[in-house]
Amino acid sequence: MGFDGRDRGAGEGQLQADRQAEVAAAAEALRAGGLVILPTETVYGLGANAADPAAVAAIFEAKGRPRFNPLIAHVADLETAARIAVFDDRAHALAREFWPGPLTIVAPIRDPEAVCDLARAGLDTVAIRVPGHPLSRAVLAAFGGAVVAPSANRSGRPSPTTYDDAMAETGDKAAAHLDGGPCAVGLESTVVSVLEGEVRLLRPGAVTRVQLQQIVGRLAEAQDDAKRSPGRLALHYAPDAPVRINAKTPEAGEAYLAFGPWPESPRVFNLSPTGDLAEAAANLFAFLRAADRIRPSAIAVAPIPEEGLGEAINDRLRRAAGYVG
């Protein structure tokens, strides 16, 4: 089961008055160069004005993030995206199908001032998307420009999928913060590059390979374009405890992330008792964090099928375990 770009979800209507005040405060904080804890359907982000190098530098400092790793620019709509990046027919087709939603498109930069050089890691391309969470889109619309918003965790740590986890990680660095509830997807966005030649899949996510191929045909692999995507470090999304993947059973002292039917235990965190990949994706980072809190000798993870969302789940698990996916 993957993300359907036509399912925009609840919450598209009028925001309540208290939400409107929070949105206005967040937009003002961004204009002032501050950082904002921002909910999306994928994970919670730590947002800053993409055009402000000092604000972007504050994100790197708050996260301890390597500066060669580019950030994703979030915008309110396709029209804004097309003013910032050069979109060909394939990019437009992908955006119309999957936006708002968990797809990031890497395209040539059109307006370098809209997303500063530091946010793009010095590249001539920009990674851009329209998020699916109505609260984040409301902030983006009120702000009026692009907001870079990497996951609101310290670099290398599991991404936060709840407001409390985001606040625990980097909340003390934020001038404003919005609680949008648990993230519906729970994995970072799929990233594709739409440059010369074939469309390349740089990072798997909730928009699956099959869904992408239905729009643009065959996908090439990352190769040299991998540097244009965030989330490509070998050790990424890692808890403090070492991670052991494809473990059919846990060993003594380990916590266990099960998948499918498994006996209940205080040291077992079942990603999906029914073997549902969408449920497993939504639970992955929260359960890695929960398992880490019991201070196990390691976190063992059950085998996850590679098809559909399993490709993205296994990518994150391989990186948590210290392997390049």
Rank of each mutant, 00 (worst) to 15 (best):
Ala138Trp: 02
Leu195Pro: 03
Ala281Glu: 09
Ala57Gln: 12
Ala220Phe: 12
Ala107Gly: 13
Tyr323Ala: 12
Leu118His: 01
Ala62Lys: 02
Arg129Ser: 08
Ala282Glu: 14
Arg244Val: 11
Tyr237Met: 10
Asp292Phe: 08
Cys183Arg: 07
Gly144Thr: 08
Val268Cys: 13
Val199Arg: 01
Gly205Arg: 01
Glu97Tyr: 06
Leu219Thr: 04
Asn314Arg: 15
Pro100Val: 03
Ala286Leu: 14
Glu251Phe: 12
Arg8Ala: 03
Ala76Lys: 03
Pro134Trp: 02
Pro303Tyr: 15
Cys183Val: 14
Val301Ser: 08
Ala95Arg: 00
Thr161Gln: 05
Ala26Met: 07
Gln223Asp: 15
Pro182Val: 12
Ala29Met: 01
Ala176Gln: 07
Ala93Phe: 06
Pro158His: 11
Gly145Val: 04
Pro158Thr: 04
Gly33Arg: 04
Arg289Asp: 11
Ile299Cys: 05
Ser265Asn: 14
Arg154His: 06
Ala76Glu: 00
Glu279Asp: 12
Ser159Leu: 05
Arg90Ile: 05
Ala142Phe: 00
Ile215Trp: 06
Thr104Lys: 06
Gly308Asp: 15
Pro131Lys: 00
Thr80Asp: 13
Asn69Ser: 14
Pro150Thr: 09
Thr42His: 01
Lys227Glu: 10
Met1Thr: 15
Ile84Val: 06
Gly132Asp: 04
Cys116Val: 02
Pro53His: 07
Thr42Met: 08
Thr208Leu: 08
Leu30Gly: 00
Leu202Glu: 06
Asn153Tyr: 10
Thr274Pro: 01
Ile304His: 14
Gly64Leu: 05
Ala121Met: 10
Gly145Met: 02
Ile304Val: 10
Gln16Arg: 13
Phe60Trp: 08
Asp52Phe: 04
Ile37Lys: 02
Thr162His: 09
Arg8Leu: 06
Asp315Lys: 15
Asn314Leu: 11
Asn49Cys: 05
Glu254Val: 06
Ala176Arg: 00
Ala166Thr: 07
Glu28Tyr: 05
Glu311Ala: 10
Gly156Phe: 05
Thr125Cys: 09
Val106Lys: 01
Arg83Ala: 08
Glu169Ile: 02
Arg316Asp: 06
Pro100Met: 00
Arg120Thr: 07
Ile304Ala: 14
Val192Glu: 05
Ser193Glu: 01
Ala302Lys: 10
Pro239Trp: 00
Asn69Thr: 10
Arg96Asn: 11
Ala255Thr: 13
Ser193Ala: 13
Gly132Leu: 02
Trp99Ser: 04
Val268Lys: 08
Pro263Asn: 09
Asp165Cys: 14
Ile245Lys: 11
Pro263Met: 09
Leu38Cys: 07
Ala121Thr: 14
Gly231Thr: 12
Ala220Asn: 13
Ala234Ile: 08
Gly47Trp: 01
Gly325Arg: 14
Pro100Tyr: 02
Val301Thr: 10
Arg200Trp: 11
Arg218Ala: 13
Gly181Phe: 07
Val147Ser: 03
Ala62Phe: 05
Arg8Asn: 05
Ala184Ile: 15
Asn314Ser: 15
Leu123His: 12
Ala62Asn: 03
Glu61Pro: 10
Ala48Lys: 01
Gly144His: 06
Ala114Met: 07
Arg203Met: 12
Leu187Gln: 05
Ala282Cys: 15
Val243His: 03
Ala174Gln: 05
Arg154Leu: 09
Glu97Arg: 01
Asp77Glu: 03
Pro261Ala: 15
Glu306Tyr: 14
Arg120Leu: 09
